[in-house]
Nucleic acid binder design. Structure first.
Lengths: 210, 210
DNA sequence: CGGGTGCTTGACTAGCATCAAATGTAGTGG
DNA sequence: CCACTACATTTGATGCTAGTCAAGCACCCG
């Protein structure tokens, strides 16, 4: 049984009108809600800067993060017209909405987005089921590193509990895995919250995920 | 992408014509391969009878089953035109192919299929990350039972190792969970291979998955 | 200064993987 | 019919991994 940590849902900024006639981009503060479960779905979004977490709350109050969306990635495409999950900004972020109501012509390839998200979800299944916690964390760091191909150092932005809820682990186990990766000389952690990763041995990291 | 897609607004058209005279249904023996990783993807399939397993082989030789497809479900829709996984018949089955090459007009709603499969994949993520092995097996039995809403007794058709590779467990753990479900009076197992389930206490089963 | 939050580490324990073996079933060939 | 092999399922014994509970540290802000 996972540790039961209380998840506080952050409130949306009231009075914010999404999907203005021009569909201008929206800037978000850290932990600001974009949409919530049960709401009417009238738009999909593309991340311009920052990162977004998509999650569900289980019956027992546990949070499970389905995916993180970084720059250029799409989220908010649903099977029906009701939200089945929550979307929040992980950090300061800006996103661009595209309305998907009856009359609006959506100038994007919805099938391509759906298939990309499906591929992401399937890859995540593989990551989660390869049982060792260290493997999962290594795979997570790989995933993050792939979003910054050029930078030797990058900010993950997610908290340890974000990572834990994403990988199906506990905060403590995630922390232990990060120190193990540090001890192995795979990476170092910088920043006051230890969320800035500098990869020292990319090959060793990849080797750990296999 | 199987097919370059312009902007298609997704509207449900009842009574649309599925398939062409050329795409006859195919009958398969148990464990017969439908397609393999690396092959060219030129069709998607709908299950008519029986069940199909979609899986990947990991670098270390482990098999991971992404999904089981039962009657009416679709599989084989890929992001590119190369297969990324394997498809096999779980038992005697019949499937119906639909070609998806450039020129063929695909008379099915690909977006709807992609979104349905995405929802399935997300649901499976939730099942897998709720760690208790018993919960996972209970959720699996629920999933199977939902495909037979009327029948008090149904054949799962999958072997214990199929279930194990689907849930990220070992064969032994799956067997132990099934005996635990039997001991709790939730179900009984019949058939020579103990794959026929008769639900005795559906509510108790659902309670176990929470 | 004190309280709050986030990260880390330690000690202990529950639960699953692993290894091993027994049973039951199917298929083959004598 | 039996002998033999191959496979699927089940059960037991044991060890390791990750969850749980607890405490400590660093940082921030009122």
């Amino acid at each position: 049984m996972l540790q039961h940590h209380a998840i506080v849902k952050h409130t949306a900024v009231p009075g914010r009108r999404y999907g203005t006639p021009r569909d201008q981009s929206i800037t978000l503060k850290a932990n600001e809600t974009i949409y919530s479960e049960g709401e009417h779905a009238f738009a999909i979004y593309q991340v311009e800067t920052g990162a977004v977490r998509i999650y569900r709350l289980m019956a027992n109050g546990q949070r499970y993060i389905l995916s993180f969306c970084g720059k250029g990635e799409w989220f908010g495409l649903e099977t029906g017209n009701v939200r089945t999950d929550f979307a929040e900004a992980v950090c300061e972020a800006s996103i661009r909405p595209f309305r998907t109501n009856q009359n609006a012509v959506v100038p994007v390839d919805l099938l391509h987005i759906a298939l990309t998200n499906l591929a992401k979800a399937q890859h995540k299944q593989l990551v989660i089921t390869e049982q060792s916690a260290l493997k999962r964390v290594a795979a997570f760091v790989c995933e993050m590193a792939d979003r910054h191909p050029d930078d030797p150092e990058f900010d993950m932005m997610m908290s340890r509990s974000d990572v834990a809820d994403y990988l199906g682990l506990t905060v403590e186990t995630v922390a232990r895995c990060f120190t193990k990766l540090r001890e192995k000389g795979v990476l170092c952690l910088n920043g006051k919250l230890q969320r800035v990763v500098r990869l020292l041995d990319r090959d060793a990291l990849i080797a750990l995920t296999i």
